[in-house]
Design a protein around this nucleic acid. Structure first.
Lengths: 188, 188
DNA sequence: CGTTGAAACTAGTCACTGACAAGTCGGTGG
DNA sequence: CCACCGACTTGTCAGTGACTAGTTTCAACG
């Protein structure tokens, strides 16, 4: 494809390149000039679509929250809380690039409308999934916080390879085992 | 204090300044030149003690892991797993600056001897605390991963103000409530 | 007490980045 | 067909990390 003045789909191209860099080297390695070079445009072209660096990362995060909402919404109706938890962890591992940006407020423009909408979507999907946790005997707010904390912490630590090797290398199995502990209780 | 050629305790001074900046504005805002200005030395002086930026952040992280180990080791003998979990969360909130760097492998020199030693110390302290969780009916590895994931996720989300307002503003109480759920089980 | 060598720090510089300003291109609606 | 406006380029500036070479101070030793 010859280089034309109008790229045609620069916004999406930069976004894709950014996700690639994020997956390879993390948020710190993302810079607008490198992305511009990769896509074959001038160094200032990305700014036209995203404003600045935080605008770009915000777009990635918004895409991530939408993907997360999709993932949770697509769970089969028979799914329970465990399935949702495992799905959350799987999402983090499969979409590591997005996940590593989604929960870094200092990198994002928190007031971005697209971001807020996507966060709202995923929050509702999470709430719905957690509803299965509310059996009346526990405070639903506490239960929700516990469930989210558990899967979020597990995903974070897993991605950092901080967990002991003994947990194995099958994310979904390990996530399910850990989540089961929360549902069943450690001292039943 | 007049500006002398030899600062006297530059390493510690830079470290302190770095923690201050970290607490105010996060890791992205930490840069060697600004720290040098704050401490009143030339822009290249910090490099003499830390090598480069990752060296500085590694020193902060090592200090953080030592502080965490101290915190856990100082728990009274009567403490149980819940107390340890709450202590972990309290540490993250009270030493937010350190915590935000400790689990960012991409910012650190993973092979730094001081860092490894401090990590080892805190790992052992965590293991010891989690030992109370091993009642024979559950896989200790899974139990440890679950306990760590829960408190780590809770601390992370709390610091990001990502949890719903309904959990309240008392970190320790909220952390304890959440941790109790893991120990007791959601569906007893 | 003077020398000397190493450690601590300064000064200068380079490549790179984010951000901004001003100009150019080209598709599209009138 | 032409004016307009969004898309993109070119040029530039200040700030940063990293490197090199030089300077000051300290302390150990004779």
């Amino acid at each position: 494809m010859a280089r034309r003045y109008h790229h045609g789909d620069l916004r999406q191209a930069v976004l894709t390149a950014a996700v690639e860099v994020l997956g390879d080297s993390g948020p710190a390695a993302v810079n607008l000039r490198d992305l511009a070079r990769r896509v074959g445009v001038s160094h200032a072209a990305p700014a036209h679509h995203f404003g600045d660096r935080s605008g770009l990362l915000t777009a990635v995060a918004a895409q991530g929250f939408d993907l997360l909402a999709d993932t949770l919404e697509e769970l089969p109706p028979s799914s329970d809380l465990l399935d949702a938890g495992v799905a959350y962890v799987s999402f983090a591992v499969e979409h590591r690039a997005h996940f590593e940006v989604m929960f870094r407020p200092e990198l994002l423009r928190a007031d971005d409308p697209d971001l807020r909408a996507a966060q709202e979507r995923s929050n509702q999907a999470l709430d719905w999934a957690i509803a299965g946790f509310r059996d009346g005997s526990v405070d639903p707010v506490v239960a929700g916080a516990a469930a989210w904390s558990l899967v979020h912490g597990f995903a974070t630590l897993w991605l950092q390879r901080a967990l002991p090797a003994a947990v194995g290398d099958d994310v979904e199995a390990a996530a399910r085992a850990v989540a089961e502990l929360l549902v069943r209780g450690a001292n039943p």
